[in-house]
């Protein structure tokens, strides 16, 4: 493997892991409520911006991070409670517009409170690059990969082994039956938004030292996360992770070997190609439509 290829791979995996985390956030909410939350990228932004602001007030980094994740989770809960839940019987597009409205609102709010400028968050353990086989990787990238791995393991344990996790899955498969089984589906929906917001916040904090952060950083990352979720098949956790990594690596390889001009088009070309041949994404269930 050439050093060049390795470098593109490192770059792709790092950014792909972030897409995967955002994609997971989309999937969790989609699973529980069949809602596509276009404000998912804003969770990421709030996580990063809030951490920067709290570190700025002199709080130690770990405390700031915990607080930022908590703040974002509250934002997620509020979004579900006050914006999505009241419109639960509305059409798909209507809910999409509500979440788009929410994303504009959140961006406006953060811009008002924390300003329009870009901010840098210090890396968790220094900026000294590590050299592997002629390619370099930042310690922060290892943090991104490590924590993504931990989250994936934790989530799969949560959904397969805990009662709450199983209840969320049950609700997603059949809300009416879940209700009959005594599951409080309203509460489940709330929890899924909170969980998804926390995931977004963690992703946002992890990348802030690499990508910098600002009030509008969530737009592009949110969009790519959506692509990752659809690529893998909506609602499939493994699919979102695979989708994210494929996207990240494809982008880096395209920039390196093909043309950096068209790097941003690559994810969308891939998604179109895949959807043309596999209309439910890579891992999506081929569902039958309800009559």
């Amino acid at each position: 493997m050439s050093a060049e290829f390795l470098q593109y791979l490192f770059t792709g995996i790092t950014i792909g892991a972030i897409y995967a985390l955002v994609g997971l956030g989309f999937s969790i909410i989609y699973n529980a409520s069949h809602v596509i939350n276009f404000a998912q990228g804003e969770f990421l932004m709030i996580g990063g911006m809030c951490t920067v602001a709290l570190v700025g007030t002199g709080l130690p980094m770990p405390v700031a991070i915990l607080a930022a994740v908590a703040v974002t989770a509250v934002a997620g809960l509020a979004l579900q409670k006050f914006a999505v839940a009241p419109a639960r019987n509305a059409e798909v597009v209507t809910i999409i517009i509500i979440t788009i409205g929410a994303s504009i609102f959140l961006r406006g709010l953060v811009q008002l409170v924390w300003g329009k400028e870009f901010h840098a968050l210090p890396a968790f353990s220094g900026d000294e690059p590590i050299t592997i086989g002629g390619a370099t990787i930042l310690p922060q990238s290892l943090w991104v990969l490590g924590i993504t791995l931990v989250i994936v393991v934790a989530l799969s344990w949560f959904f397969n082994k805990t009662l709450l996790g199983k209840a969320i899955l049950a609700t997603s498969h059949n809300p009416d039956a879940a209700k009959l089984m005594g599951i409080n589906t309203g509460f489940i929906l709330l929890i899924s938004f909170g969980l998804s917001a926390m995931l977004g916040a963690i992703a946002g904090i992890l990348v802030a030292p690499i990508t910098l952060t600002s009030y509008d950083v969530g737009i592009m990352l949110g969009l790519k996360g959506f692509v990752a979720a659809v690529l893998g098949g909506l609602g499939s956790g493994a699919g979102a992770i695979a989708g994210g990594l494929i996207l990240g690596i494809a982008e880096a390889m395209a920039a390196g070997y093909i043309s950096s001009d068209y790097k941003d088009a690559v994810p969308f070309v891939i998604i179109l190609a895949i959807l043309f041949f596999m209309p439910s994404g890579l891992f999506g269930l081929r569902g039958t439509e309800r009559v």
Partner: peptide, 8 residues
């Protein structure tokens, strides 16, 4: 809006 230019 790119977040990483190491490939280029």
């Amino acid at each position: 809006k790119d977040t990483d230019m190491t490939a280029q």
